[in-house]
Design a protein around this nucleic acid. Structure first.
Lengths: 349, 349
DNA sequence: GTGAAAGCGCTAACAA
DNA sequence: TTGTTAGCGCTTTCAC
C-alpha cells in the first residue's frame, strides 16, 4: 500500500518549492521567472511556467511583502461609501490599481475622526504602500500618523509640505464659473448657493469659487442666499426650505453637490414649484444618478475616473520611484458644466 | 560626535525585537502579550505594552499571516459597487468584520465572468480566509477555484454541497406576498411584474415568488405583464414603456428591485401618469434612496445589514471553527413590506 | 545563467 | 511563567 507516498502532508497548496521540484530547477529560478527577470534562460522559464500552470500555483503575497518590503496594497479612505460619488470613485481606483498589479483596501471614515484613525491604523498594520485620503478636508488628525511612518499619501485639495504627500487640486473654478455664467446668460440675477459643511475644505473652496464667479458675473451676493447644508439629500431639502422662507427668493440655486441638488428638486416638487420653469437648479459632481432625476440635473461634472487616476498615479510614483527628482506632487482635475434639464430662464419678475 | 549611535540603520519601523529589547523581555513574551495569552505575568505584560506604546509599534500582519496561516482577511465580491444596494452591504460587512479584527477586500465583478475570475484569483493570492460572493447568481464559474482550494465561501441564494460552502437564503416570499396582498387589498387586480435578468438566480426566485403570491391571492397572471428587465434605472424605464404599449395595462407594478421601480416612477412621470393615483409601484431592496423618491417608494425591504451579518458569520464560523459539528451552513434573511407613498387604490375602470 | 543560503517579522513548539 | 529556536514562503545577495 502506497500509504507514505499518497499522504505526505495534508495536501498544502503548492509553494515555490513544489514548483521548483516539478520544474527541476532551484527556487531562485522560479522566483526570477515569476518576476520576469531577464536572466532566466527561455528553456528553464518555459519549464517553470509549465509547472506553475500544472500546479495552479499562486505566489503568496504575504511572503513576498515580508521580504520585499512592498505590499502592492494601496489604501483608499472615503468619507462615506454610501454617497454615490464614492463608489464610482472606488470603482475607478480599483480598476487602475488592479491593472497595475495593486490591490486596494477600502474604508469609510463616516466623517468620524475616531473611525478615521482606526482606518489608518488598520492600513498601517497591513503595510499599505500608500493611502489615498479622499475625505475632502477632514484629514488633519491622521496625517501625522501617516507622515510619521513615511507612507506616501495623496490628499484632495489640501497641500502639505511633506516629501511623502501629494495633492490633487480640484479646479472647481472653471465649472462653477461656467455654471454662473450659464445662469446669468439665461437672465438670472438672484442666485443662491447651497453650501457643504464648513468643516470640509472642498465645501469652502466651492463656496469661495461661487462667490468669485458671482463677482465676475457682476451679480450681487446676498448673505441669506448662501446657506450651509451637509451634502446630503435631506440637507438639500432643508436648504431649499430655508430659502423659501425668505422674503425675496432666488430664481436659481447652485448646489455644492448633486445630493443637495436632488434634495432641492424633491423639495421644490413638494412645494409645487416646477423646475426649471419656476426655479433653476445646478448640482456638482455629476453622479450617475444625475442623469435620471426629474428633470435631468444640469450639473458641474467632476470626473471620478480622472480623480481616481490622479490619486493612483500620485501614489504609484511615490511608492515606486520616490527619489525621482521629476516626481509629480501636484495633480489637477478639472470640472465642466453639463447642461441638462434643470435650468431655464427665470420667470419675469 | 555620536554618529554611530544616532544612525544605526535608516530608522526602520520598530519590530517585535525592538519592543522586546525596550521591555527587556524575549520576543516570545511580546508576541504572547499582544495575542492576549493568559500566561504572561502582569508585570511583564505591563512593560511590554508600555514599550509598544512608546515605540508606536504595530505588528506586521504579513508576518503573522505567513506563520499562522490565517490572514484575517475576508473577500467580498459584489456584482456592481455602483448599484446603491452594494455600498450599503459593503458598509455593514466592513463594520462587523472590523469589529472582529478582520479586514476586507472588495471587488466588483460587473457581471463579467472574466473579471470575476480575476477577482477570485487576486483574493486567493492575498490568502483570504473566506469569500462572500454577493453576485446573486452568476457565481458558478468561479466556485470551483474556491472550493478546490478549500476556501470558505458564502453564497447568496445558491446551495452547494460542499463542506466549505454556506448559503444565505433570502426569504423574498414573505415580502412579496405581503406586497401582492397589499395591492389586492387596495383593489388591484391587474398587477405586472418587472423582473430582473433571468441569468440571476435571485431574479428568478423573485419572479417565481411573485407568481406564487398572485396565485395565492387568486389573481390572474398575464404573460405580457411579466417583463424581463435588468435591475437598472434605464431598464425600469424600458419595462414601463413596454407595459404602456400594451392594449390592456396593469394598474400596479411590482418591481424586482428598487432601481427598476425608480425607473418606472420616472417613466410614469414623463408620460404624465401620476403615481400612485394612476399607477401603484412597489420596489424591492429598500435602498436608502427609496425614501426620497417622488413619491416615496413603497418597497419590500431586504436588510443589507442582516445580509452582511449573516455573510460574515457564515465565513467566521467556517474560518475559525471548521470542525464544529454545529456549524451553521444555512442562514435566512427575511424581507418585509415597507409602505410609503407609491401605492393607492386603482382608478375605477 | 543558475543555485545555495540568508533573512523579512512573526508564532508556536519545546525547553528550562 | 519565560526564553530559545525553527520555520511560514518568498526575494535577493553572493558564489559558481
Amino acid at each position: 500500500m502506497p500509504r507514505k507516498a499518497s499522504r505526505k502532508t495534508p495536501a498544502k497548496s503548492p509553494d515555490i518549492r513544489t514548483v521548483a521540484a516539478l520544474a527541476k530547477v532551484s527556487i531562485a529560478t522560479v522566483s526570477r521567472t515569476i518576476n520576469g527577470s531577464p536572466v532566466v534562460s527561455e528553456r528553464l522559464a518555459k519549464r517553470v511556467w509549465q509547472a506553475i500552470h500544472e500546479l495552479g500555483y499562486l505566489p503568496n503575497t504575504h511572503a513576498r511583502t515580508l521580504v520585499s518590503g512592498r505590499s502592492r496594497l494601496f489604501g483608499i479612505i472615503v468619507e462615506n461609501i454610501t454617497n454615490p460619488f464614492f463608489p464610482e470613485l472606488i470603482q475607478s481606483f480599483e480598476e487602475v490599481a488592479v491593472a497595475h498589479g495593486y490591490e486596494i483596501l477600502v474604508s469609510s471614515s463616516n466623517s468620524n475622526p475616531a473611525i478615521l484613525t482606526t482606518c489608518v491604523r488598520r492600513m498601517l498594520e497591513r503595510k499599505v504602500d500608500g493611502v489615498a485620503v479622499m475625505t475632502f478636508g477632514e484629514e488633519e488628525p491622521v496625517l501625522d500618523q501617516l507622515m510619521h511612518r513615511k507612507i506616501p499619501i495623496v490628499l484632495a485639495e489640501f497641500k502639505l509640505q511633506d516629501p511623502h504627500c501629494s495633492t490633487i487640486l480640484l479646479d472647481y473654478r472653471s465649472g462653477i464659473h461656467a455654471a454662473v455664467r450659464h445662469l446669468a446668460g439665461l437672465g438670472h440675477r438672484h442666485i443662491a448657493f447651497l453650501a457643504g459643511p464648513h468643516t470640509l475644505h472642498s465645501a469652502l473652496t466651492r463656496e469661495n469659487d461661487f462667490r468669485a464667479a458671482m463677482k465676475t458675473a457682476g451679480l450681487p451676493i446676498q448673505k441669506n442666499w448662501i446657506v450651509e447644508c451637509d451634502h446630503t439629500l435631506k440637507g438639500g431639502v432643508n436648504g431649499f426650505d430655508q430659502l423659501q422662507a425668505l422674503a425675496t427668493r432666488p430664481t436659481a440655486i447652485v448646489c455644492s453637490n448633486d445630493m443637495t441638488a436632488i434634495g432641492v428638486l424633491r423639495a421644490a416638487f413638494m412645494k409645487g414649484l416646477q423646475v426649471p420653469k419656476d426655479l433653476s437648479v445646478i448640482g456638482l459632481d455629476d453622479i450617475d444618478f444625475a442623469e435620471f432625476t426629474l428633470p435631468p440635473l444640469t450639473t458641474i461634472r467632476l470626473s471620478r475616473a480622472d480623480l481616481a487616476r490622479a490619486a493612483f498615479e500620485a501614489l504609484r510614483q511615490q511608492a515606486e520611484d520616490p527619489s525621482n527628482p521629476h516626481l509629480q506632487r501636484e495633480f489637477l482635475v478639472s470640472t465642466s458644466l453639463v447642461m441638462r434639464g434643470s435650468t431655464a430662464p427665470p420667470v419675469a419678475d
